[in-house]
Structure formats: structure tokens, C-alpha cells
Design a protein around this nucleic acid. Sequence first.
DNA 1: TCTGGGGTCCTAGGACCC
DNA 2: TCTGGGGTCCTAGGACCC
Length: 419
Amino acid sequence: MYALVDCNNFYVSCERVFDPSLNGKPVVVLSNNDGCVISRSNEAKAIGIPMGKPAFELKELIEKYNIKVFSTNFPLYGDMSSRVMNILAEFSPEIEIYSIDEAFLNLKGYKYIELQDYAKKIKDTVYLYTGIPVSIGIGATKTLAKAAEYFAKKDSKSKGICIISDENRKEYLSRLPIDEVWGIGRQHYKMLNKYGVKTALDFVNLRPQWIRNQMTVVGSKTQEELMGIECFDLETSPPSKKNICVSRSFGNMISDYSLLAEAVSNFAASCAEKLRHQHSCASTIMVFVITNRFRKDLPQYSKNVIVNMPVATNSTFEIIKYALFILRNIYKDGYQYKKAGVIVSNIVPDNAVQTALFDEIDREKQNKVMLAMDNINKKYGRNTLKVAAMGKHREWKLKQEKLSRAYTTKWQDIINVKV
DNA sequence: TCTGGGGTCCTAGGACCC
DNA sequence: TCTGGGGTCCTAGGACCC
């Protein structure tokens, strides 16, 4: 059996841990640039605030119900996440960290009756040690665990834990809306709806060949998983990324080339860092720029260019160099840019890089410089040492007007408790 | 005024090989 | 009238996830 442990309203819960006055009140957390709602407390959901709604459209509701609003605080959420994951790892020899707020645990060998108690112990321990509430779904496959998690969250009488067994599986599937099934997205939902498929049980009862034809092998796997046949293994160590993308919308639009170049240099440097972190090199780089598509009154422009580099690299110097080369070619004067990004791909392990006959770079030396830079930045903080092209103005920075403190990752921000 | 960021997998079709 | 058989690699586009 697999358990899916999912943190409830994770970002909001992180904010509440350090500010208990938020308990019982409607709270939302916004995306970068204070753009859209990406996390809601139950009270905010009850008011009817939808996921992904732009914040400025909610101004009235926010005032009317005195909703507490936060900018996204990733250092805090990332740190709280790793605390939760460390605790979960104590409860199973095999864990897959599926996202910042979810993990699958392998619970092989437990009986149903023990599972209930064990899940409760997991839930209580995570709450006791971190203050984060979780829900737990348990099933014979990852898809069934996901389904169980839906009921753990939805049924108040489940108290945050739901186990789908062979005996009760059909009953649960008959109550699971088809669009809540893991792997069924908007398009397939529309298509299935047209054929009268409303629940997960309806889906399970479809002819396998029909599903294969309409939804490819992906749909077939989902069907089998819902029947209790395992198609997706636990991924205990995350595979290396095949693409790495760093992109941001700007707080204010940028028309000045030098500012845009600074931003792109920072994104490129971040890509290089991520490559080194997973011990990879990339040989393809793409840079894109785009104006504000919502501003119909302004001239629109978007462009991306891909360059294949002669030798796969993870050097900040080289990746910035190529990124700026592309930017010079795609930048056009007279536009107000809203977003830019860098994507590296064709990723290979750093110990399996195909060298080039006419390569003029002393790669051994370059690697040592990068290693030294990473070590300094690790010890003294991010961007303590950086490439000049990255600048220091950060005028392209994000809008974050409602940012909470970095309670767990910054000495100055540690919380004071008066007893 | 204001609208997020980062990924994966699968397939069809074209280009190519013998 | 009729025109082989068996492959690989790459890419764009669509679907999905958080």
C-alpha cells in the first residue's frame, strides 16, 4: 500500500505556524509579483475565492471579509517543506517527494487496521513537530492513494485519513468525480463528459481499447491504477532534470536593454547553478522575451532563439555569455517587456561531456572557479560572489508587498517569544 | 495600475538509414 | 493494373502535474 501525505493549504499553513493570530481567519498567498491566488485557507475557500484568481480582481472581497494577504515566501515554504519531508522519511524506508507539499510513502507490509493507526501517528507527529496539518490517503497504487487523499480532505468525518481497500474501492470510485482523478485534466474531462463518464467508476468500466484509442497509453495506465494494478513506481531519488527553466515576470515593465540584460544574466546564472547542483551540463540554451499580453493598448512582441553551444557546460560565465548573445539578437527597441527567461536543455551528466577538438576554454580551471564560487555562496549567502553582468540594481525585481519574514532561514528574522 | 513559475510524457509525421 | 520491408532519430504539439 502507498500513502500520499499532502499538507493542507500548505503556504497558508506555513504563514500560520509563525502567526497564530491568522488561525480561523480567511488567508491567501499570492504568486510572484503578488499576481494570482495560489494558496487559500478553508475560510477563504468558503468565501468563494477561486484558485488562480488575479489579486487585483479580488480587492473588494479582500476588504469586505478582511482577508489576510501574503506575498509568496519561498525560503520559508521550502524550509518548512524539508522539515516535513524529513519527518515523513522516518516513517517509511521508501519515500518519494512528489512536490513541495506532497510525498508518497511505501507502506508495504502493514495491515489495514494497523494502517489507520499508523497514518494517525504520521499526521500527529508532523503537526506536533512543525505545526503543519496534513491529510493522508492510502491505496494500493499511487493513483488510488491520490483518490483516497481527496476523501481524506473532503469528508470531515474522515478526520484527515482515508484508506481505499479492495473491499471499499468501488464505493469510493463511484463518489469520485472524474476530473478529480490524478492524470485526468481539463481536455480529457471535457471529452469524457461528452460520453457521459462522470465518476472514476464509470471510467474504470470503459472498454480498455477505447481508452487506449482516445487517451493513449497514459489513459490506460490511469484506468489500471484505479483498478489496483500498479503502473507507476515510487521514484525514491529524483531523476535529473532534462530541462531547466528560470523565468520571471517583472514588477514593472522594462524597455531598457541594459536592465533586461541584467535580468537575463541573473536567470542564466541561476540555470548554471541548478545544473551544477544536479551535476549536469547543458549544450542548448534558449532565451525568450515577451511584452505584456494583457496590455492591448501597447505594441506586442515576443521572441525566442535557441543556440547550441559547442561543448556542454554548467559554467556561469559561459551560459551568461550565450544568453546575452541571444538577447542582443532578439531585443527590439521600443517595446515594454514584461517577462523574460532562460531555458537550458540537452542535459548530460557533467562527467560525460563530449569535448570538442577546437575547444579553447580551460574547462578544468573553469570548474575550479565555479566550485569556489559555489562554496563561497553556500557559506556566506546567495549571490555573495557573482558575475558583474548580473548587476546590483535588481530594478526588474518582483513586487512583494506583503512578504512575511524568513522566520527559519535568516538570523535577523527569527521570531521573538515573550513569556 | 494589477494577471505565476516550473516541469514531464506521449504521439504523429518527416527525414533518414539499409 | 502493378511499385518491399524494416528500422531510427528528431521535433512540434498536445496533454498532464504541482
